[in-house]
Design a protein around this nucleic acid. Structure first.
Ligand code: MN
Ligand code: MN
Ligand code: ZN
Ligand code: ZN
Lengths: 142, 142
DNA sequence: TAATACATTATATTTATTCTAAACTGTTGA
DNA sequence: TCAACAGTTTAGAATAAATATAATGTATTA
């Protein structure tokens, strides 16, 4: 399936018609081998730089939300001021680089199954996520 | 050390004079056996209900931030719209009840050490946090 | 007391996010 | 062919958490 068709498919399955604004958003988000993490502000900037079309904020937010609802994107609230979004929707974990404000994926296979001994009556665990904050390793202490 | 003195001590160490507004905030946050999680909105409501004094939002935010900076509180951004704060500043993990929007502590001892195989060159891990989302366990499937 | 430093507050500002309403576009069926 | 309709885009307004401001109040010090 060609890229454009994949995007059209994703949009249709999210209940959205494939318009040129939405396909542009898909190109930025999904037309790459790598998954990645972004803020809305960053996404808008990428679109503006790449495209000859302009996409309004409302359309960006609406499309992102439709994709989240459908499971094509995940929201990651790391920060009080601004959400991060993740095109990797598999179950995985993250490093968060506090100096560069950057999220880095950790494959599920790279973390041993997290074993939680505590339980809450009447509740079951739906998902488990690990966030490891990282900083520069100045090995100055001999 | 009596409670009031503890609060005065915490405030002084945070670089704040012990005023009656700030001591009231301390009473709500620290005058209990249990640690707990709260939003600013919830905190303000508790103060209003308990106290005969009124504390402005600016004073609440300023005091909370001074405590975070000093390490007496932790901020937990779980939610894009509003931060949660935690009076438990030990290294620990959380359940997040998605139905009741409630954080529940998981003791560090209740989670086996999280072993991350991946490393990032030049970076070291500063902290590791686990968030397990929980939902009602409707054991309807026989 | 007078001078000074620090606090509190109401209010304004900022900014991410959501909402609104009007203009626009593509599709459908007579 | 084209009018009706459903859905889309957009600018701008509204919302709300968080932060900043600046005037007033209070405590400490000399
Ligand atoms: Mn935190
Ligand atoms: Mn906000
Ligand atoms: Zn990721
Ligand atoms: Zn906690």
């Amino acid at each position: 399936m060609a890229y454009a068709e994949q995007f059209i498919d994703k949009l249709r399955k999210s209940g959205l018609r494939p318009t040129k604004q939405r396909i542009k958003i898909c190109e930025v988000l999904f037309d790459t081998d790598k998954t990645f993490h972004f803020t809305i502000k960053e996404l808008v900037k990428i679109i503006e730089n790449q495209a000859n079309i302009k996409v309004s904020l409302a359309t960006v937010y609406n499309t992102i939300h439709a994709f989240i609802k459908k499971g094509y994107l995940k929201e990651i609230p790391l920060n009080a001021s601004q959400s991060y979004y993740d095109t990797n929707v598999t179950h995985h974990h993250h490093f968060f680089d506090e100096e560069e404000n950057r999220l880095i994926d950790i494959h599920q296979d790279d973390v041993d199954e997290v074993n939680i001994k505590k339980t809450i009556p009447g509740k079951k665990i739906k998902s488990v996520e690990v966030i490891a904050k990282i900083v520069s390793d100045n090995q100055s202490q001999k």
